[in-house]
């Protein structure tokens, strides 16, 4: 079923919308949730929460790209779960490793950038990502949006793991430079 038809079902408050969403995007959402949470049980739970959240979000939202819409909700729910779970004690694993890498770009947290809304920052990051080569961009998104492991990304792109690490390192450095230039860190 086309995305527009599924969205129409949501707008009609037809519960078949959830079934169609699960049929089309269940696997996609599970991959995101597994990558972040690294737990089959937690992932399944979050994906169900995501379906509910989509049901509650449409209307008023009418997303043009359901993939990104439901993916974004799944990611947000996963990170929220992860932040709660790791509030007291940070754990190990792929998501934590990716977050540790990203932490290089945020500085000490003592700057005025604490006041900058993530939405505004997202605009800058969008510009940054649009300005780098497609491969670097996709690898960055795979790592820090989808939280894929290095080995998964290496396999997906046909690169060695060292090459993926190197591309990520260079991209993070460029991002850091951009954030510094814009006085964001």
């Amino acid at each position: 079923m086309e995305d527009s038809q599924i969205v129409a079902l949501y707008l009609e408050r037809n519960e078949q919308a959830v079934q169609e969403t699960a049929a089309k995007y269940g696997g996609y959402c599970m991959r995101i949730a597994r990558s972040i949470l690294r737990s089959e049980e937690d992932a399944a739970e979050i994906v169900n929460e995501a379906y509910l959240s989509v049901w509650q979000s449409i209307p008023p939202n009418q997303p043009e790209t359901l993939t990104a819409f439901i993916g974004r909700i799944t990611r947000t729910l996963c990170l929220k779960r992860l932040r709660t779970a790791y509030a007291a004690k940070r754990g190990s694993g792929e998501t934590t490793a990716a977050l540790d890498e990203l932490a290089e770009c945020v500085g000490s947290g003592q700057n005025v950038e604490q006041e900058i809304e993530a939405k505004e920052l997202a605009l800058r990051i969008n510009c940054f990502l649009q300005g780098i080569p497609e491969t670097e961009r996709s690898i960055f998104v795979c790592r820090y949006w989808y939280f894929n492991s290095i080995s998964e990304i290496a396999s997906q792109f046909g690169f060695s793991q060292s090459k993926v690490k190197s591309i990520l390192f260079r991209t993070r450095k460029k991002l850091c430079d951009m954030l510094r230039e814009e006085d964001l860190i």
Partner: peptide, 22 residues
């Protein structure tokens, strides 16, 4: 800037970037 702010910001990047990467 807090790490959560950065991860949330990355979560809000354009749809086409998310879709293309996948």
């Amino acid at each position: 800037m807090k790490l959560d702010t950065l991860t949330d910001a990355i979560g809000m990047i354009d749809d086409d970037l998310i879709v293309n990467a996948a």
